[in-house]
């Protein structure tokens, strides 16, 4: 079985799906001849031709709006927005149109499209190139939001996203694009959307994370072992719809929770998860829930990036705080 990084795993998922389904069209800035700024679509235009891998102008609103038209007509577009910060101009298309088509037409029209976005910080890139806008997207009804945490996960989740009848925004943590290599099988396997992954069982505290933060949490879990603290780790995988059962089942067992995300703190997804736990598992809680997050500022430049991004050290502090309540 080939050991692939996330870039290669996503490329393989696209390649295999495009072979199976000729309705799948890739469009985006530099995705064709150049193979994408992170080389995710490398070789796909050579293989499938210019009609199926389309270089677009620098026009993000147009890319996403066009993808919607294609999806409604019967194609399966996979659009790429080059960097997270370039997604903001598309919010009009996403919130005002794409997320509402199914509801507006009482299910007569669905909008099967995927918007892939390299996402998040950790590569020393400046603002617009290091943002984590997942909470804005999760707040928008009618779209699914998927964030893989490993190459294997990325392939299985992307295949499910492409086959899903509804619009999916697929956020790819660029920090771990090439940081992890693991076995990624060729051929068909899918990971269902809306189901979290229990990465590691533990009895003391539930840690909830997604994307690049899963790895940080696992590193923290290793450190905590030395202090005989047993962390249960949940990778949400899909933040919308969210697997509330997986969260509450775990918190009912451990009675304690820490949520880790690199997006700013205020109105981040952590706040929503805390509210859900309060609604569904309040009487099981033994301590206030802690959040380890980015800060309420635009993503800082290189020198402050390591202060901004949650790391194992900050996670360990939060877990110990919860343990000592």
């Amino acid at each position: 079985m080939p050991k692939l990084n996330m870039v290669e795993a996503i490329n393989l998922a696209l390649r295999e799906e495009m072979e199976k389904d000729d309705r799948i069209i890739i469009l985006g800035e530099d995705v064709g001849r150049e193979g994408g700024v992170f080389r995710v679509t490398d070789g796909l235009q050579a293989k499938f031709g210019e009609q199926r891998v389309v270089d677009t102008p620098l026009a993000e609103t147009g890319i996403v709006g066009t993808a919607m038209g294609m999806a409604l007509y019967g194609l399966r577009p996979v659009a790429e927005i080059q960097f997270d910060g370039f997604l903001y101009p598309c919010l009009d298309q996403i919130t005002n149109h794409i997320g509402r088509i199914r509801n507006r037409s009482r299910g007569r029209f669905t909008c099967p499209l995927v918007i892939r976005v390299p996402y998040g910080g950790g590569i020393h890139a400046p603002e617009h190139h290091s943002e984590s806008p997942e909470a804005i997207l999760a707040h928008t009804p009618g779209i699914k939001v998927v964030i893989p945490s490993t190459p294997f996960e990325a392939k299985g989740l992307l295949v499910s996203s492409i086959r899903d009848p509804d619009p999916v925004i697929f956020l790819e943590p660029k920090r771990i694009y090439r940081a992890i290599r693991e076995d990624v099988p060729e051929g068909d396997y899918t990971i269902p959307l809306g189901k979290a992954r229990l990465v590691q069982e533990g009895k003391d505290v539930t840690a909830i994370a997604w994307g690049a933060m899963v790895r940080e949490v696992l590193n923290a879990a290793e450190e905590l072992k030395r202090d005989k603290i047993d962390l249960e780790v949940i990778d949400l995988r899909t933040i919308s719809p969210m697997d509330v059962d997986a969260i509450t089942t775990s918190v009912k067992k451990t009675g304690k929770a820490v949520i880790v995300h690199e997006a700013p703190r205020t109105c981040g997804l952590g706040a929503e998860i805390i509210a859900l736990i309060n609604e569904k598992a309040f009487l099981s809680l033994q301590a206030p829930i802690e959040r380890v997050t980015g800060f309420d500022v635009p993503v800082p430049l290189l020198k402050s990036e390591h202060y901004y991004l949650p790391n194992p050290k900050r996670i360990v502090v939060a877990v110990k705080k919860v343990m000592s309540f």
């Binding site: 620098l58 910060g85 370039f86 400046p126 603002e127 617009h128 190139h129 020198k303």
Partner: peptide, 23 residues
């Protein structure tokens, strides 16, 4: 103040603003 970086340079005195967002 070291916050803008090369794509986000501003000078109030020169009524100048930059943006990394194309267009």
């Amino acid at each position: 103040g070291g916050r803008g970086g090369h794509m986000h340079l501003f000078s109030k005195e020169h009524l100048t603003a930059s943006s990394g967002i194309v267009g």
